[in-house]
Nucleic acid binder design. Structure first.
Length: 349
DNA sequence: AAGTCGGGGGG
DNA sequence: CCCCCAGACTT
């Protein structure tokens, strides 16, 4: 299979590089080959759209302009810079990797594929992207865009979630990487997938530089590719969220270090949809004096594997409880990173 | 190989 | 609603 793929993508580098020179979008991380900046962009872009990343990227580099600054950054600052971007372990691993670079690599970003791959949070894709873009190594970066482009050009109906299929595609690509233009070829593949050979609807084949040798285009099978596994059904959960106010402060809770939103702050909440009376009773059982209900609201939040149907009760309470952390509105706004699911209730304050 | 881990933009 | 996004890591 690999040999077949190689033959069918043989014309890709020449066609894509010429097209990329004229059609590359100007993106902040394309103005440099500094590995810190390219690495940061690749981590932020994991499962995250370009438009969402732009502002985060610029602000992050403004506040933490060097690897050593990142290695020394307090977690609060780090998470505030990541707040709302999702997949928060990316931020934790980013700092871990920065510390590794300082301690193990003498503060110099590693320059081989294997060393880059060894950093926490860096997998095959990111290592290939950084190595090719920053160090001109023939290391493919096989993301969703590239899988779509290659499976369409070669009309490969193999399920792309299988590691073996990704490896075949990666090896075939590595063999055709153009000397001296490795970074541009990596980016041109992704650019084609992002702007021409797009997901969700018909690709723009009429302007595609590969339409002369694309099998899916020739046979009209673009929409059937790539082949993905069936998606698992999402679970639904009802939750009751407490917005507790006491003496100008708001109650927060620290989530467990494992699992969903690991280690993040949250508004106190419990499983199940409590009535306002049940919620008030629960507060009394937890050691609060009788509480006054101020407002309530319902919000839905959708994660990848679970959906929260949340009912929030805003209570004014007269005494606080030690197991909760009490913060001012200013702290909550400017210092503490609160996941989006809970941010949806802050307008009740 | 299958599950887990956020959030959002667009059909 | 549904799709899937410049994926990585754990089990």
């Amino acid at each position: 299979m690999e040999e077949t793929i190689k033959k069918q993508i043989a014309r890709l580098p020449e066609a894509l590089l010429a097209w990329y020179e004229k059609n590359a979008r100007p993106l902040p991380w394309r103005e440099t080959t500094d590995p810190y900046r390219v690495w940061l962009s690749e981590i932020m872009l994991q499962q995250t759209r370009v438009e969402a990343v732009k502002q985060y990227y610029t602000r992050f580099l403004n506040d933490l302009p060097t690897i050593s600054a990142l290695a020394a950054a307090p977690d609060d600052q780090l998470f505030k810079l990541w707040e709302g971007l999702g997949y928060y372990t990316r931020a934790k691993n980013l700092k871990k990797a920065a510390i590794t670079i300082v301690e193990k690599f003498g503060g110099v970003f590693p320059q081989t594929y294997e060393d880059i791959l060894s950093l926490p949070g860096v997998g095959d894709y990111t290592a290939g992207a950084v190595a090719s873009i920053c160090f001109n190594l023939p290391t493919p970066a096989v993301d969703g865009n590239v899988l779509r482009v290659v499976t369409r050009i070669t009309e490969l109906f193999a399920p792309i979630h299988q590691p073996a299929v990704k490896k075949e595609i990666s090896r075939a690509l590595a063999a055709c990487y153009p000397k001296g233009r490795c970074g541009d070829f990596t980016q041109s593949l992704m650019e084609l997938g992002a702007t021409v050979c797009i997901p969700n609807g018909a690709p723009n084949c009429s302007v595609c530089p590969a339409n002369g040798f694309c099998r899916a285009h020739a046979n009209g099978t673009q929409l059937a590719l790539p082949v993905r596994p069936a998606k698992a059904a999402r679970k639904k959960e009802k939750r009751t969220v407490f917005l507790l106010k006491c003496g100008g402060k708001i109650a927060l809770n620290k989530r467990p270090e494992q699992g969903l939103l690991a280690g993040m702050w949250e508004l106190p909440n419990v499983l199940g949809a409590l009535t306002v009376n049940q919620a008030a009773s629960m507060l009394e059982e937890e050691g609060f004096a009788p509480a006054n209900i101020l407002q309530s609201a319902k919000r839905k939040h959708i994660f990848t594997h679970i959906e929260w149907d949340m009912t929030c009760y805003c209570f004014r309470v007269k005494n606080n409880v030690n197991s909760l952390i009490w913060v001012t509105q200013d702290q909550l706004l400017n210092e503490i990173a609160l996941p989006t699911a809970f941010k949806k209730f802050l307008e009740l304050i």
